[in-house]
C-alpha cells in the first residue's frame, strides 16, 4: 500500500468547520452534508474541509486532540509504556500533516504540534521495531497489533512480511519431508 492511499483513507475522517457562506444540505453517496450557514459549525469530511479552506470559504476547527497539552500527555504516556499507548485518532499522523499543511493559520501553535506528533511517531516506530525484532527472535507465530495505526503498519509491512516468509521456509527445512510441493505458487 502506498502512503498516499493511506492518506486518501484518512480524508474520510470528519472535522468541524465554520463556513462563511450559506448552502442547503447537499446529498452525496457517502452521506448528506450541511446545511451550511455562516458562523455555524458543521461536521464535514477532511477532503471537503480542505477544499473549502483552499477557496477561503471556511475556517477549520482543529480536532480536540490537536492541542499542545494533550499531545504532551500522550507523548509522556508513550515514552513511559512499553506497549503501544492508545492514539487520539487512527489517522493522527495523516490528519496532522494535512491540516497543518493547508490550514496552519487556524491551528494555534502549529509548529509545536508538528514537533510533538513527530516525537510520538518516532517513539512508536522505535517500539514497533523492537517488537518486530523480539517477534522474530522468539519464533512467535502470531502477534496482536493493538493500537497500531495503518500508516505505522504500512511502513514496515513489506519488510516484515518478506522476512516472515523467508523465516517460514527456513523453519520448514527443520522438518524434512514436510515441505515437499508446498511452494509451487507461481
Amino acid at each position: 500500500m502506498d502512503p498516499s492511499e493511506v492518506e486518501f483513507l484518512a480524508e474520510k475522517e470528519t472535522v468541524k468547520i465554520i463556513p462563511n457562506f450559506s448552502l442547503d444540505k447537499i446529498y452525496l453517496i457517502g452521506g448528506d452534508l450541511g446545511p451550511f450557514n455562516p458562523g455555524l459549525p458543521v461536521d464535514v469530511p477532511v477532503w471537503l474541509a480542505l477544499n473549502l479552506k483552499q477557496r477561503q470559504k471556511c475556517r477549520i476547527v482543529p480536532p480536540a486532540w490537536m492541542d499542545v497539552e494533550k499531545l504532551e500527555e500522550i507523548r509522556e504516556l508513550e515514552r513511559k509504556e512499553d506497549t503501544f499507548a492508545p492514539v487520539p485518532s487512527p489517522y493522527y499522523m495523516e490528519l496532522t500533516k494535512l491540516l497543518l499543511n493547508y490550514a496552519s493559520d487556524n491551528i494555534p501553535k502549529a509548529d509545536e504540534i508538528r514537533t510533538l506528533v513527530k516525537d510520538i511517531w518516532d517513539t512508536r516506530i522505535a517500539k514497533l521495531r523492537l517488537s518486530a525484532d523480539s517477534f522474530i527472535s522468539q519464533l512467535e507465530a502470531h502477534a496482536k497489533l493493538d493500537n497500531l495505526t495503518l500508516m505505522e503498519i504500512n511502513t514496515i509491512r513489506a519488510f516484515l512480511l518478506d522476512s516472515l516468509n523467508c523465516m517460514y521456509k527456513l523453519r520448514s527445512n527443520l522438518q524434512p519431508g514436510s515441505s515437499k510441493g508446498q511452494f509451487t505458487d507461481y
Partner: peptide, 22 residues
C-alpha cells in the same frame, strides 16, 4: 532482497511526508 523491500517502505513514507507523493 529484504533490504530493498525495507527501503521501499521507508522511501515511500519519507516522500509522502515531504509532500512529494502528491
Amino acid at each position: 532482497a529484504l533490504f530493498t523491500s525495507g527501503q521501499s517502505g521507508l522511501n515511500g513514507f519519507q516522500s509522502w511526508e515531504k509532500g512529494r507523493a502528491s
